[in-house]
Write a protein that binds this DNA or RNA. Structure first.
Lengths: 385, 385
DNA sequence: ATACTTACGCCGATCAGCGAACAAAGTCTG
DNA sequence: CAGACTTTGTTCGCTGATCGGCGTAAGTAT
């Protein structure tokens, strides 16, 4: 059932969102009596979820005691597992990064090895941050493939051999583990950081492949099988000659993904293998690379133009490796979207590069973890326990 | 704020959904004490929202008194305004149709005339159903264009001259009026009738134009500007020669809409003007028409294949005028979707024709009205008043 | 008939939340 | 600088909603 309004969870939500910093604020916002609020806040303080800081500015009367999240005794991890890397951030309850790390790590080594590595790194990060292992409340994890979110099991992931149906949360006993597609957590992070008030947002990751995270009504849309946002295999005009690893041809990913752009560059006599190579060439001023990136942007924009008509988002954020040369990519994207989408849908549409850089997925995964822990339902459970 | 669990509104929701038919059921489902449930039910009965019927079957003890919605004193209207017609259904609180009507009506006559017509028809339908005007609680209305749902004002509708920004609800003082795009209300109706348990559903209307209603998490997704679902102007492969009224070319609507198919038939020497003509030709066994409808299905399927990857729905329902020959249309749609979408997304996907026929929009609009009235928030307001 | 089961109303006990009164801690003013 | 004023926060008795036990109603099984 939905939590009652004014429950401890609601009160904490207001504090964590920054909507209220004092008991008086809370009383005003919730409509509850000041005495009731005091009770609620006391309970939250007793559970070490909230703390009082030195008094704030007086507005003519007694200065209010400021409230804020009690960050010391809680920690949250955001884990970004890529095909060849592992990034982890350790956060406090407010989303501040306490420690982070990054290693090369082949996801193809299989879940046992990879998750053991993660577990070791978590211990190290906790030590660096000076928190006991017990302080780690929730782990959020982004993986490069579809996941059944409710159970944390990868669902026939194409580039994660050995991971199919593997129950990832079981490898971290005693901690809640939320596993999601990497693009989804990036979308979440970008929404919370850059467009917290937008109701509907798309995050497009342009790396080796192309994927999309969907935020609808402020929450992640994962679809019926958790495969929503898989736009890399949408067909684009022309390009029937480009075969895709999925078996079809003319897939967006096969013509505009980092690997595809690299291959085309190679064909033109400019050797490149990966999206990173392409980025390097563009940054070095290679005009062929620049042209192809912009052309990739146009192709991506063509697909996005359709999705803008369909989904009518407020913002589109472009991230991923290729977005490091986002000026050129975005130019192509914008050009096509504004040409092919309906004016009503594009009028108030922001199309912007990602703000979060390479740590986007890890940060988003951490936010996923924190939001789970601070959700009113969970807080009420903790307080009533 | 969210209503408290076990509130009168929650109780009524359980009764109206058929989850509970007795006080004992309610106590079990809500977890509230039997005495509390009795109070709640009494309040609902007093407000004429619920009634008791003759006792039900005993299961070994005293037979429970059955509860059901008190239908006599409430009525709801679903209005379907099309380009050239007006259909209205009058419903009771459970969605049973009490009376209905259908007239030719040109929406281009402007809001005053059209809405006055609707108002007159409502009086007549209420008379037929033997209910006073005061029994009419909410009017749901579907119109052929984008609407700002919160205010009930059409938003630059292309085929509703004179309606832009017109405050439709003001024309029905004393009654709540909910105005939405016609495709949205059709999607809602189809979801509630045919796929009530599906979380995500797409409804595609193939008429003169092509539009799509989106149900996400069981609720309508309207997008940031209320223009979500406008898939008629998504680009399809080839067909650059087909200009569209929107100014672009190769729009789905311009190659696979009813008007487009009719035009192509005419070019082939088979005279046809509208989608209805096309339907008649197919039903008469014209092979050219049949081929073109199937081809239109393939083109629509191509766009839907991309949307299936993106949105990952559980069901796609095809409706609209052309769906009267749905065998042929659906064949083309299915063919393309299964070829171009990802297996994970299509594995549990149902692609089916609309069940609701020509009254789909009116019925959906009525359901929109009823659900608004029976929403926990609204019921709590009524009971506490 | 009698025991048993289930349904439901009544009523005292309980508890969450309210608001008035009070205490605390500052600013403003003569 | 003292006292009035303002705002914050706590204490505590009050109220009203909810609970759960008991009695009664209304059936079935033996």
């Amino acid at each position: 059932m939905t939590p009652a309004p004014g429950s401890p969870g609601d009160v904490l939500t207001l504090i964590s969102a920054g909507s209220a910093t004092t008991r008086s604020d809370l009383a005003r916002l919730t409509g509850l009596a000041r005495s009731t609020i005091s009770q609620r806040v006391d309970a939250l303080i007793e559970r070490r979820l909230v703390e009082e800081t030195e008094s704030g500015e007086s507005t003519g009367g007694r200065p209010p005691r400021q409230l804020r999240l009690h960050t010391e005794e809680h920690a949250f991890a955001g884990v970004d597992l890529g095909a060849t890397h592992c990034r982890i951030v350790l956060m406090d309850m407010t989303g501040v990064v306490l420690a982070q790390c990054e290693d090369p790590l082949l996801i193809g080594e299989g879940p046992e090895k990879v998750l053991a590595h993660v577990d070791g790194r978590l211990d190290r990060l906790l030590a660096v941050a000076g928190r006991p292992r017990a302080a780690l409340r929730v782990i959020g994890m982004g993986v490069p493939g579809p996941v059944e979110f409710a159970t944390g099991r990868p669902n026939n992931p194409p580039i994660m051999p050995g991971w199919n149906d593997y129950p990832i949360p079981d490898s971290f006993p005693g901690v809640a583990v939320l596993v999601d597609n990497d693009v989804n957590v990036m979308a979440l992070g970008e929404h919370r950081n850059a467009f917290p008030t937008a109701r509907h947002l798309l995050f497009v990751k342009v790396g080796t492949g192309i994927g999309c995270g969907i935020v609808a009504e402020g929450r992640l849309h994962r679809g019926a099988q958790g495969s929503a946002g898989d736009i890399g295999h949408i067909r684009v005009n022309g390009h029937e000659e480009s075969g895709c690893r999925c078996g079809n041809s003319a897939c967006l990913e096969a013509v505009a993904g980092g690997a595809a752009v690299a291959r085309r560059l190679t064909e033109l006599g400019v050797p490149a293998e990966t999206g990173a190579d392409v980025v390097a060439l563009v940054q070095a001023g290679d005009t062929q690379a620049l042209r192809l990136v912009r052309e990739a942007g146009r192709l991506i924009g063509e697909v996005l133009a359709g999705l803008v008509n369909f989904f009518n988002p407020e913002a589109i954020v472009i991230g991923g490796a290729l977005s490091r040369v986002h000026e050129h990519l975005l130019a192509g994207v914008r050009e096509t979207i504004y040409r092919r989408s309906l004016p009503l849908a594009t009028h108030h549409l922001s199309i912007v590069p990602s703000r979060m850089g390479v740590d986007a997925a890890a940060l988003g995964a951490g936010i996923l973890a924190i939001e789970h822990y601070l959700s009113p339902d969970n807080i009420n459970k903790i307080v009533n326990a």
